[in-house]
Design a protein around this nucleic acid. Sequence first.
DNA 1: ATGCCCGAGTCGCTCGGA
Length: 262
Amino acid sequence: MASLKIATFNINGIRSRLPILLDWLSKEAPDVVCLQELKADSSAFPAKEIREAGYGAIWHGQKSWNGVAILAKDTEPLETRRGLPDDPDSSQSRYIEAAVQGIIVGCLYLPNGNPQPGPKFDYKLAWFEQLITHAAGLLESGHPVVLAGDYNVIPTDADIYNTRSWKKDALLQPESRECFQRLLGQGWTDALRHLYPEERIYTFWDYFRQHWKTNSGLRIDHLLLSKSLVPKLANAGVDRWPRDLPKASDHAPTWIELDLTD
DNA sequence: ATGCCCGAGTCGCTCGGA
């Protein structure tokens, strides 16, 4: 396989969003998909429909909230981990990891952290610390790794339409941004920003205030690459069209293409 | 300082996420 397309998509409820997911899989044919916010118990995961669409899958569900999954086109993801080591609250399904096509893919749903300050923000930062610890181990392993998901962090003010009404939001607090920068500082590359250092790129538009219609978005869904994958990064983007459909998720699928030709 | 939108459940309003 010369090219590998890896996507992350916060689906915001896989049951109500399944037609959109299947439509998107059929049209864009990503090789690997990280899903977040399944908002469904593991027993309610639509494995049959996804298999019929040509994808193997592993998932870590939870009733009502959170939930993550990894899909792989024409193959089965080989699960390497579910949940972070020393997860601050293992009842919340926020991490799953698999080997696919020779790459370790970590799929994460970082806590939102609002309102802040408060216990939810503390939990966000605690979870982030465990992610940073785990990510260091992944880099040390020497394997090619992609860490993809909803980080619930707006890395800089260039990743938001306007900070005015978000000043107190957990997604852009200095503590949240400092964690993200410290993660990058281990040696990870923010794939979309690497390819498009100056572009306005958004992956999320909330349901409030006509934010989609006015393109008032945030960039919070990220794909981080370990060092050996950076020279293989051929393309990246955001599929905006599923955000425009009726009953859309508030996130759009975000993807990279790796050229794995030696 | 708060609501905005949305899905799910206790259904046609309320609750709470983010």
